[in-house]
């Protein structure tokens, strides 16, 4: 088996005359957090949808576990262990933690007409899965509508991990969250990494990405600016590449805020 679980070689995707992504090279390793950075319109969404099997590459090669693959649908990618947590999370607010956790993949007991959803075991598994992600669910029958955005994100991630994901693609998991909740979600990402999963984290927030990432791929206008190990680049380098240096001033204040937080932690 190859060192990398996912490898993209010169992958392009066109929509008619529009070049969404062009000649992207990317390597994803188990036990690593791979950050995909880029401003709006850089092609992040197209790239993750290509990884997730929503779009097939128009050009180039997609290697999974060292072998070239073409996923016909997201379900095929999921069966291979590539799970994507989109921003809408695929959760139902009115349903309980357990019911959401097992939605569509309910565990059952009993036979024939007495075959039923094994809620007791499901409660335990959901509670345990969440606890492993550092979230203490007191009552697994509570509706997730009562949970915070960060906790819901964690539930979606815990669910993907429980159902055998090897590669976890997270689409802007901290986009709508406050600082505290973002930290919670990033902690869950760290736990997923510690369990040996490959995590592909999409964000345009360098401050969220930098502390947790092992490797960065930067996208700009559909093209890759390259992949870097964290040892090779500083936060400022990444920022500069992303923003083209123009909006650094604006972000300096934000940066200071973050380093202050780091210091107090």
């Amino acid at each position: 088996m190859s060192e990398f679980i996912i490898e993209l070689k010169k992958v392009s995707r066109y929509f008619g005359s529009v070049i969404a992504i062009k000649d992207i090279d990317m390597k994803v390793k188990l036990g690593e957090v791979h950050c995909l950075l880029g401003d709006n319109g850089a092609g992040k969404s197209t790239l993750i949808k290509t990884l997730a099997g929503v779009h097939a590459p128009s050009d180039g090669e997609y290697l999974f576990e060292g072998k070239p693959v073409v996923f016909e649908s997201p379900v095929e990618a999921l069966d291979s262990g590539i799970a994507t947590v989109y921003q809408d999370l695929a959760l139902v607010p009115l349903m309980s933690v357990t019911r959401n956790f097992f939605m569509g993949r309910e565990i059952t007991k009993g036979r024939g007409i007495f075959k039923r959803f094994d809620i007791e075991t499901a409660n335990q598994i959901a509670q345990k899965g969440m606890a492993e992600m550092g979230i203490n669910v007191r009552d697994p029958s509570q509706a997730i509508g009562t949970m915070s955005g960060g906790e819901r994100q964690c539930l979606a991630i815990a669910r993907a991990i429980h159902f055998g994901a090897k590669v976890l693609i997270l689409d802007e998991p901290t986009a709508a969250l406050g600082v505290k909740q973002s930290a919670n979600v990033l902690k869950v990402v760290a736990k997923a990494k510690a369990r040996g999963l490959a995590v592909i984290l999409i964000t345009h927030n360098v401050h969220h990405a930098y502390p947790i990432a092992d490797r960065f791929t930067l996208l700009n206008r559909g093209q890759s600016l390259g992949s870097f190990m964290k040892s090779e680049v500083s936060r400022e380098d990444v920022l500069e590449m992303m923003a083209g240096g123009q909006e650094l001033d604006e972000l300096t204040a934000e940066l200071e805020e973050f380093s202050r937080l780091d210091a107090t932690a």
């Binding site: 959760l91 349903m95 809620i119």
Partner: peptide
């Protein structure tokens, strides 16, 4: 108490989310 029952809740709660899973 059944799988199908969970699907009923999921379908009405958010059919897009239900479909996605």
């Amino acid at each position: 108490r059944t799988k199908y029952g969970n699907w009923i809740f999921a379908t009405g709660g958010d059919d897009k989310a239900a479909r996605n899973v």
